[in-house]
C-alpha cells in the first residue's frame, strides 16, 4: 500500500489528518504531510477512508 500525494492540490481541509492522524498530518501552512508513505496493512481501512474523504482529491492509494 503506497500513498501518493499531490500537495499542489491540497486545500487544507484536514479531513485526512482527522481520519488517520498516525499517517497524515498538517504542516505549518495547514497543507497535508504524509508521515508514513507505505503504512502497514492494518491501517488500510482508515487510510482508504482518509483518501476518499479528501475534498480536493489530493490523495491516492496504490496497491
Amino acid at each position: 500500500m503506497q500513498i501518493l500525494v499531490d500537495r499542489g492540490k491540497c486545500q487544507g481541509y484536514g479531513n485526512c489528518a482527522v481520519a488517520e492522524p498516525r499517517v497524515f498530518d498538517l504542516d505549518e501552512n495547514g497543507i497535508v504531510k504524509v508521515l508514513v508513505d507505505a503504512p502497514s496493512e492494518e491501517l488500510r481501512d482508515q487510510v482508504k477512508y482518509a483518501v476518499l474523504d479528501c475534498p480536493a482529491r489530493a490523495l491516492h492509494l496504490e496497491g
Partner: peptide, 27 residues
Amino acid sequence: NSSHFRCPYHGWIYKNSGDWNGAPQRA
C-alpha cells in the same frame, strides 16, 4: 485522542496545543 481539532462548520483546524493550523482554501 486527537492531534488536531477541526471545526465542522468551515473546517478551520487547530493543533491540540490550540495553535491555528489552517483553513480550507487558505491559499
